[in-house]
Simulated assay, not measured.
Amino acid sequence: MGFADAVNRCFGIGKCRHTTGGTMCPSFMVTREEQHSTRGRARLLFEMMGGHLAGGPGLRDPHVKQALDLCLSCKGCKGDCPVNVDMASYKAEFLSHYYAHRLRPRTAYTLGLIPLWARAASHAPRLVNSVMHTPGLAALAKAAAGVAPARDAPSFARETFRSWFEPHQGSATLRPVLLWPDTFTNYFQPDVAVAAVEVLEAAGFSVRIPRANLCCGRPLFDYGMLHT
């Protein structure tokens, strides 16, 4: 199904306008504005594809961009909507076109490319943590990254999960199972993956991990960096 067809899935039942129960749609629950409901966003996308908005045809309409800004890409609509409207995917596709051959906001490069920054920081995690938690330096780093000053910076683990796992020897006689450590587990919370290894081995499995550093791709997806 193409993008133009996908945005036609919504038939306007309005379940996304509920303010209690379910997941869909958190931004509407706060603003109570139609443009921030799944239905409202789907309608704007439909009008955009038909060339009926002030911005004209094409996937660079500022009205659609504004409506999608508060979408959390939580995929609540994918599960709660009767016709499974997937606004997170629509947003990613829209942003991919909207920023084609354009500079993106700073947060897209800092958070969307977090796998690259985390891998670099893993070579000197104590130094990076010191900078990110020292008053003054932390404020400068957050300002450069486009992160709100009130947000606490996460701490990088002193040892990544991959480093911990490297000398780990699984039993060749047990059933193999693949454990995929994502960016956040590997660089920020390796204890979660370590615990998973212990549980799997206790259950009689021999744990394997991918040879290459792999990211789930979600940070790139959230910022519409679909061709990165």
Rank of each mutant, 00 (worst) to 15 (best):
residue 105 P to I: 08
residue 119 R to M: 06
residue 131 V to C: 02
residue 135 P to S: 12
residue 132 M to V: 08
residue 123 H to Y: 13
residue 125 P to T: 04
residue 103 L to F: 14
residue 105 P to W: 09
residue 136 G to D: 05
residue 104 R to N: 05
residue 128 V to I: 10
residue 122 S to T: 07
residue 106 R to S: 12
residue 102 R to K: 15
residue 124 A to F: 13
residue 136 G to C: 06
residue 101 H to A: 10
residue 135 P to C: 07
residue 102 R to T: 10
residue 100 A to F: 14
residue 117 W to L: 12
residue 137 L to E: 06
residue 129 N to Q: 04
residue 121 A to T: 02
residue 116 L to A: 14
residue 106 R to E: 11
residue 136 G to Q: 05
residue 115 P to H: 03
residue 111 L to E: 02
residue 128 V to P: 00
residue 136 G to N: 05
residue 99 Y to Q: 06
residue 131 V to S: 00
residue 132 M to L: 15
residue 115 P to N: 03
residue 108 A to F: 03
residue 120 A to H: 07
residue 106 R to I: 08
residue 138 A to M: 09
residue 112 G to T: 03
residue 136 G to A: 09
residue 116 L to K: 13
residue 106 R to H: 07
residue 99 Y to V: 07
residue 102 R to L: 11
residue 105 P to R: 06
residue 103 L to I: 10
residue 111 L to N: 04
residue 128 V to F: 06
residue 128 V to T: 09
residue 104 R to E: 11
residue 126 R to L: 09
residue 133 H to N: 09
residue 105 P to L: 08
residue 123 H to A: 15
residue 137 L to F: 10
residue 129 N to P: 03
residue 103 L to K: 13
residue 111 L to Q: 06
residue 101 H to V: 07
residue 137 L to W: 09
residue 138 A to L: 01
residue 122 S to E: 03
residue 115 P to C: 00
residue 101 H to I: 05
residue 118 A to C: 07
residue 137 L to C: 11
residue 124 A to H: 12
residue 119 R to T: 05
residue 126 R to A: 14
residue 121 A to K: 01
residue 127 L to H: 05
residue 112 G to P: 06
residue 100 A to Y: 13
residue 126 R to N: 09
residue 104 R to M: 12
residue 110 T to P: 00
residue 136 G to S: 05
residue 137 L to D: 00
residue 120 A to P: 02
residue 99 Y to M: 03
residue 111 L to Y: 04
residue 117 W to Q: 05
residue 100 A to N: 14
residue 104 R to D: 02
residue 108 A to S: 12
residue 137 L to G: 04
residue 109 Y to N: 12
residue 119 R to G: 04
residue 125 P to R: 01
residue 106 R to P: 12
residue 132 M to A: 13
